[in-house]
Write a protein that binds this DNA or RNA. Sequence first.
DNA 1: TTGTAAGCGTTATCAG
DNA 2: CTGATAACGCTTACAA
Lengths: 353, 353
Amino acid sequence: MATIRDVAREAGVSIATVSRVFNDSSVVSERTVNAVRAVAAHLHYWPNGAARSLITNRTHALGVLLPEIYGEFFSEVIRGIDLAARVHGFQLLVSGSHADSEALAEAMRAMSGRIDGVIVMAPDADAPAAIRGFSSRCPLVLLNPGQDVEDCDTVSIANDEGAHEVVTHLARLGHSRIAIVRGPARNLDAERRLQGYRAALRDSGIPGAPGLELAGDFTESSGEAAAAALVRLDPRPTAVFVANDHMAIGVMSGLRDAGLRVPEDVAVAGFDDIAMARYATPALTTARVNTSLLGERAVALLLHARRSASPGPRQHEVLPTTLVVRRSCGAKPPRSADPLRRRGAKAFRGPAT
Amino acid sequence: MATIRDVAREAGVSIATVSRVFNDSSVVSERTVNAVRAVAAHLHYWPNGAARSLITNRTHALGVLLPEIYGEFFSEVIRGIDLAARVHGFQLLVSGSHADSEALAEAMRAMSGRIDGVIVMAPDADAPAAIRGFSSRCPLVLLNPGQDVEDCDTVSIANDEGAHEVVTHLARLGHSRIAIVRGPARNLDAERRLQGYRAALRDSGIPGAPGLELAGDFTESSGEAAAAALVRLDPRPTAVFVANDHMAIGVMSGLRDAGLRVPEDVAVAGFDDIAMARYATPALTTARVNTSLLGERAVALLLHARRSASPGPRQHEVLPTTLVVRRSCGAKPPRSADPLRRRGAKAFRGPAT
DNA sequence: TTGTAAGCGTTATCAG
DNA sequence: CTGATAACGCTTACAA
């Protein structure tokens, strides 16, 4: 690998001049610029990023820490981050699959000195505690923390309000016995969606009951299991709010296996609006989350924090969800206004390469 | 940000000792180790990665350059890379959305000095030329180059063989008028799948025809358009091989709109086996690609190349596809042996957080 | 077992 | 306009 010294020697100038050329310093004469560029190209030289950031204290990279890197949801979060970061010339140092908060802290430490800011999504309740102290080193934005975090910027999904809207929709359709399939116990999104469900029942004057709150873990198979539990309830619920779409698809499949029709016998609604929701049979009513916006806003907050020297007050953004009515809840969906139709066509370009 | 000097001063030792502690050098006395660790923890100190890699010449990071970061396919490629990289303690510097080869080269330059190796996927035909010269700086693996590349390691999908198998399957079901919906013109995957289609027709003794080769661009909507073109063909094909699943779903939707039944009137088969293929109505026959393995193998080659000092001969791996028979082709699918059933349950855990 | 000091490849601050 | 030279934060001989 050629270094700045090789280029300087070959071009007959000092390393300072070579550096100036690569930093677009306007003081260098055109003759010198051309000479240096020619030599650099010939030697395949490009400034070493590590050395550069060591002295400038800027890396033009953002850290991204997610619990998991796969699946429509996370994939779109990353996409949102990538798009926004690219605009500002930032690259992404990504790390997924953090089993626990210790793994998270470990990954964050490994990024030390390589990033200008970091975006963290950790559904664990103790994650904010684990990364405390890091925010003093570089700007940090928490994605969807699920709890009130005071000492750093956050961007969240309106889980409560979204769930509230979905359940209220079911209630307005005339259902008065509405079950819920919950998410994982320690998952904070799941917790907030449960709160929204309970509040909606309260606000609609419908009595809740512990028996109506079925267990689930966000997987499709847990949805199938929940459906089996649901059909055994007596009296049987006429509607069910499922805490995410993957489970909702499992629930519909389970209900079908039990000989029940959706939505005639049981109305079903989910949360997230993953692409498959539109293709499920029947198409799934759900709360649409603008996932990529989550990432975009995080980058915006991060870069804003970087620019302003003084910390300033912490920002806490909450992104609203949109109720998407399809066949699974039994309401007549607005035929022409499915927002997913448009998104589907755009977002799924070229799966293979 | 505390530096190694702060820790050394506070702990009353030299910076060399602090360095030794953080590099698990066994020569340091236990007393000193404890003292240093205590001070470091107190100051929230962690070695600066940029400085570290500047002198060690190792970054513990791999570059990942993809044309796009979103969608099931790329998402799973990244996941495979992440999983394999994590095992070896590597982080990922990811960059997506490269409009052209120049953007690709640009992104690669920006990673200079920050990575120990790089994985590049670029469907453009001129991409290998654009990144030539980089492979001398650090190990490079090309993903699915679509053409023979001699001067670096490659991992590819068996596009030809996969397409050949799908089309042969259609031929064996008795179809003798089989159309294809092609992918984007300059896309090399699409090109190879077309070759496989043509070869399969030849090998089955079925005459091909330019009219049977319909245009497409890998998007769902282009599939719908292709379906419209297909129904106007005379005589109408009784089967169609679609170069990817997204388009295939569009094709089925388009055929339905034209009043044709799948598979009774037209048998349909796709390529990729995206998750939705299983949920489409009817479920889609397709060639399954083990996408995450693509990423895993790339990491394996990269780390292998790093270890061996001498370059050694270039490796060229080709990952086979698996024919997955579902309802859309009209064959009776093996009821119990759908490999996706298992994958679906595992792979789609926890979409939201 | 510990400390001193020489880099790693840049950029930034001075002089000239 | 250009050239020395001192950082940046760390690892690693070599010395003690």
